[in-house]
């Protein structure tokens, strides 16, 4: 879902850059205040894992592929502010070094896949684990739902930005983006669930850390 340069107009670029800059500022402050000793290497591991996992495009229907965003996994393990910081690292590196996602579109990409995906995933996970219980089953169901919801909502914000920029009419781009990402979200949900299952089996203590 990395937006290249050219898809967004100046106003959308400016607005998303401003919001994302503010979001990163908030994330730096919150992470600096609350990050625990154990969470320092976890920040590095999650950024590394999300970068590697994003390279693995999996096929979805009709000659289309998708890849995980990873914000849900980061938000569940570390909390939404830390996830925003991790996603920003990944997206900035992808844009600057790998030419994946435009330079001017970086603000929009950080907003969609960083801020929207992280916070939506975190609150969906909290809601589901509150309803289903904070046991293994609740964690896996919550992880799936959070991951799916984060992809779906990120794609809706992406569609809104494209429509506001005049790239494609709202009534065309919104259902198209939401439809294909409803499928990609299933992949995100399954992968997030699998990784959470692995963490539960090997380092369940990581799920007990304070969320940032």
């Amino acid at each position: 879902m990395h937006i290249p340069d050219g898809f967004l107009n100046v106003a959308t670029v400016a607005a998303t850059c401003a919001v994302s800059a503010g979001g990163i500022g908030g994330a730096v402050k919150m992470v600096g205040r609350k990050l625990g000793e154990k969470q320092v290497p976890l920040m590095g591991i999650l950024a590394a894992f999300i970068f590697a996992a994003q390279m693995l495009n999996f096929p979805v229907a009709g000659g289309t592929s998708g890849h995980v965003i990873g914000a849900a996994l980061a938000a569940i393990l570390l909390g939404p502010w830390a996830a925003v910081l991790i996603m920003s690292c990944v997206l900035i590196a992808q844009s600057l070094i790998f030419q994946d996602g435009g330079l001017l579109a970086l603000g929009a990409n950080i907003f969609n896949m960083g801020i929207v995906a992280s916070f939506s995933a975190y609150y969906i996970y909290r809601l589901v684990t509150w309803l289903a219980g904070a046991n293994r089953r609740g964690t896996l169901i919550g992880g799936f739902a959070a991951a799916w919801g984060s992809v779906f909502l990120a794609s809706i914000f992406c569609a809104i930005e494209l429509a506001l920029s005049g790239s494609s009419p709202f009534g065309v781009v919104l259902p198209a983006m939401a439809g294909v990402h409803a499928l990609i979200g299933i992949g995100e949900g399954l992968i997030t669930g699998a990784v959470l299952g692995l963490v539960l089996a090997t380092r369940a203590d990581l799920l007990q850390l304070q969320r940032i």
Binding site: D5, G6, N57, S167, S168, V180
Partner: peptide
């Protein structure tokens, strides 16, 4: 990994705005 276009690229192709995309001014 699958080399098919991803969700956004697919939508941009189908809805006819993929041509708006600009390549990066440099390559690493």
């Amino acid at each position: 990994a699958s080399s098919s276009p991803d969700g956004l690229e697919r939508v941009a192709e189908d809805k006819g705005f993929i041509g708006l995309g600009q390549d990066s001014p440099y390559q690493v």
